[in-house]
Simulated scan of single mutants.
Amino acid sequence: MKSTIAQKQSRIQRRIYVLLSVMISFAVCSFWPTAYATAPTSHLAPAAVEQYAEQQAHALGTSNSDWLAARLDYYPLGPGTHGWFVQASISDKRVGYMIISVTSLGELTLSEYGQGEQALYDNELLGQALERLHLEQAIVQAAGGKITAHYAPPLLAYWKLEYPNQDALYVDASNGDLLPGHTLLQLENNAPPSSWGAGKLLEPQHNSAGTVVRTNQVYTHPAFDPSLQLAWLTSEPLQPAHIEKSLQYKQNEALVFSAGERNLFYGGPLPVSAHQWWHQDSDSILYVALGGTHSVQRFVPFNTLRNDGHFYMINP
């Protein structure tokens, strides 16, 4: 009789253990995809950053009214990079995003932006990347592991996965690919100290408040996968003047951007998928969109791309 009771108690204990294990695993899986960022942290973004972001959103709103009605949530990137990921949304539906960085001169700049529901640092993408890495999430969390969002100019958005007694892992926040750890570690170790002047950002820059910035509509270009059309590898890079002319007047031409050895920072080579002009008084700035076929479409200043790589044309 005692043996029977003991067996029943043992079975009940095993069932309770299994149930608790399932519940804990579910809770951990729900936690980890969002562990890279806490709740929106606008109180951690300086007033000047919020003002600057609102100005850029208003400029984008001149060609896309959704930006005018969107709520802006701020997530600091770092630590130590003095950058912010700004998510624009209307009733929890994504409108777009911005990456606002601080230059070596301590000035704010719009490093990149995206429009629509696709965005960097997507929780679902992170969850898929962790699954491919076969990570034991419960063990990592219990060991004090953490995931943080980082950004390395000119265009590398990534997650850093850290847990005790293990080498850090780095995951591309635009496509979920695993990045070479030794390269990222070297990048972090050799990063120059920031010359960011906190005093410059403590208060809004009122002298720019009256500046009117507007954007043209987004002009799209042919979508394709550069890895499946390799003729561009044997062609000569286009000259900057030819590129701007192609973007404006020959939008049916398929263009590829490649940064050579620096493609790690772009996730490239990538197709040129769109472009958009920004206007401020008599000045104009061209933003070129890269990707969108298998990753997030990202608008980047043309001058940044021109300095870092080359454009190639794929003959139709």
Rank of each mutant, 00 (worst) to 15 (best):
D66H: 11
T81R: 10
P40S: 08
G106T: 11
E124H: 14
S111C: 04
T81N: 04
P40N: 07
I99S: 04
E54F: 08
D92V: 02
L44C: 07
L125W: 03
A69C: 08
Q128R: 14
Y113D: 04
D92N: 12
V102N: 02
A70H: 07
H134G: 08
C29Y: 12
S63N: 02
V49M: 06
E124W: 13
L135I: 11
F31V: 12
S65M: 03
M23D: 12
S91F: 01
Y97M: 04
R94C: 08
L105K: 15
E50Q: 13
H134S: 13
Y121N: 06
G61L: 08
A59H: 11
P76F: 12
H134T: 10
G83N: 00
Y113I: 06
S91E: 11
T38W: 03
L44F: 10
Y113M: 09
T34E: 05
Y113K: 05
P33N: 09
H58T: 14
L125F: 05
P40R: 06
Y121W: 10
L108Q: 09
L108K: 03
Q51T: 07
G96Y: 00
Y36W: 13
L44R: 12
A35S: 10
I100S: 03
D73M: 07
S89M: 09
Q128T: 09
Y52F: 15
S111I: 03
H58G: 11
C29T: 10
Y97I: 01
P79R: 15
E54M: 12
S89P: 06
E54K: 14
L110Y: 06
A47M: 05
D92I: 06
S89I: 09
V95W: 00
Q128L: 13
T34C: 05
E124Y: 14
P40T: 04
S42E: 10
S101C: 12
L110S: 04
A53Y: 00
L130I: 05
Q55Y: 06
S91G: 02
E117I: 14
Q51W: 03
E54G: 10
G80F: 09
L120T: 04
L135R: 01
M23G: 08
D92T: 09
W84S: 09
Q51R: 09
S111N: 11
I100Y: 01
A37L: 09
S104D: 15
S101Y: 00
Y36N: 02
E124N: 13
Q87H: 13
E107D: 15
R94Y: 11
V49W: 04
S30V: 14
M98R: 01
A69V: 08
D73G: 05
E112Y: 03
A27K: 15
L77D: 00
E107H: 14
A59Y: 11
R132K: 15
Y75Q: 02
L110E: 07
R71W: 00
L68I: 08
G114C: 05
T34R: 09
E117N: 14
A47T: 04
G61M: 07
Q51F: 06
P33V: 03
Y75V: 00
Y113R: 03
W84A: 02
A27C: 15
Q56P: 00
Y52P: 03
Y74S: 06
A37G: 02
G114H: 02
T41F: 04
